[in-house]
């Protein structure tokens, strides 16, 4: 740790904050988009017999990206549901170690996920899969899912290196 120059650490922190904000904004735009799209689709259909063509497909794609954009964010805030039944029995050092081990496991899982989704994207390119109505190609969706999973690998590695946060203090 000491070998890393403070400026590099500062840069890393700034970069991660920027990424956190960018992903948060992306997720926000996608979710708001889903809401607006559904709203106008229903109004258009019920009031004017004109649903938005392909709203169904667009919603699916937005949601797929939304979930994976939210993943690094929730992971950075230790927001995954876990059962802390044994926590009271552990000392501070054991708790610290457990947190780091869990983070490493999380990172490994995310490496696998990033890899299989990248592979899935390649396969979708080969197939030429697209949506039925708007003909939106599906490979880029899987590609984005993979990239966001890779971000999450970085988040978990950072969690493992930094260790447990103080209660109530989240980064970003």
């Amino acid at each position: 740790m000491n070998a890393i120059k403070p400026s590099a650490v500062a840069l890393g922190i700034r970069l991660s904050r920027w990424l956190d904000r960018a992903l948060g904004l992306l997720a926000a735009v996608l979710l708001f988009g889903m809401m607006v799209l559904t709203f106008f689709d229903v109004i258009g259909r019920d009031a004017f017999s004109r649903p938005i063509p392909g709203a169904f497909e667009a919603t699916e794609i937005m949601m797929g990206i939304l979930i994976f954009a939210g993943l690094p964010l929730i992971s950075a805030r230790d927001g995954h549901v876990s059962v802390n039944l044994l926590d009271p029995l552990l000392g501070a050092r054991a708790r610290n170690l457990q947190y780091r081990v869990v983070s490493v496991v999380g990172a490994v899982i995310m490496v696998v996920l990033a890899y299989v989704l990248w592979d899935k994207a390649n396969q979708l390119v080969a197939y030429g899969d697209a949506t039925a109505y708007l003909h939106i190609p599906l490979a880029p969706v899987a590609r984005l899912m993979s990239v966001f999973s890779a971000f999450t690998v970085v988040v978990f590695i950072a969690n493992a290196v930094i260790g447990p946060r103080q209660a109530g203090r989240a980064p970003g």
Partner: peptide, 14 residues
Amino acid sequence: ADVTYSVHGYTPGR
């Protein structure tokens, strides 16, 4: 699985 069935049109473009 070893054997599956489905509809070709469920994966448009393929």
